[in-house]
Amino acid sequence: MARQGAYASTGRNCLKGIIINYMELKCTREASGNAIVELGRKNSNVVVLSADLSGSTKADEFAKVFPQRFFNMGIAEANMMNTAAGLAVSGKIAFATTFAIFASGRAWEQIRNTIAYSNLNVKIIATHGGISVGPDGSSHQGIEDIALMRVIPGMTVLVPVDAIETPKAIFSAAEHQGPVYIRLARLKLPVITKPQDTFIIGKSNILREGTDATVIACGIMVSSALQASELLAKENIKITVLNCYSIKPIDTGTIISLAEKTGAVVTAEEHLQIGGLGSSVSEILSQNYPVPVEMIAIKDRFGQSGEPEELLKEYHLTSKDIVTTVKKAISRKI
């Protein structure tokens, strides 16, 4: 696998054109790397495993400070996951780090049968989630990881939205008993949350309130949803924007109440439509409070090479796409 390309392209950032210009861009991978180091200082049971790629996942930060508690397993993700299971069953909190595609794909059955089945304390830090990985192309773009992880019984799936929320996700995962999958992006992401904002597994945060429709988003799409809310406000359409950082367990109560309040829902994720956040929201609403649901997601196709901004446009994952889709959802209201 030509993973060197991942190193080569990590420095680039191409979100300038598609995010709100006042937002500061910060790397969630760096935030994650630093948070795990902080955790390591507080708790000697924290260990980190890497399947090569330590520079890309920022696991190298932990390796520098705690070399004894860092295990590079080489390019062998299946073995890494089960080694993490062995460390976890011995009382360690094991952070296993690699790219989303390899964590969720190559090592899926190890996660399912050995980690999740026994509810072990393995925390999977999956960087390079989504199509915004960019030029490395489809083989390195994890676009089905949320679906693959969320389908496993008892698995917790988190998608922190920015560099402020990422450490909160890491700390919450460490305190949580059982496996957790944390999806991070390659790109620097706009900072949209505040240090004092809460982060609770199974909850979500309302970032904008409006009564015409609700956009439920995760990851990079949350800032696009905020941008869409500003564009829609110019047309006097007021939307609620929900930062749905906890994909599983998901904040069922808030999602139902927002459907009741606004009568139309749009989901937005940098992931395949099949099995992702949109599917999850639809499962809840169809059973509890059916309202029109539209989904911004990657349709049934693979990614490809290109700059992140170009790809987000090509796959209809921009704020403009959210604007159009919100109008469509509203038009479907009975």
Binding site: N82, T83, A85, V89, Q110
Partner: peptide, 12 residues
């Protein structure tokens, strides 16, 4: 999968 797990326990 067992040898990988055993490695983790031995490392621990």
């Amino acid at each position: 999968q067992g040898l990988s797990v055993a490695n983790g326990i031995a490392l621990s």
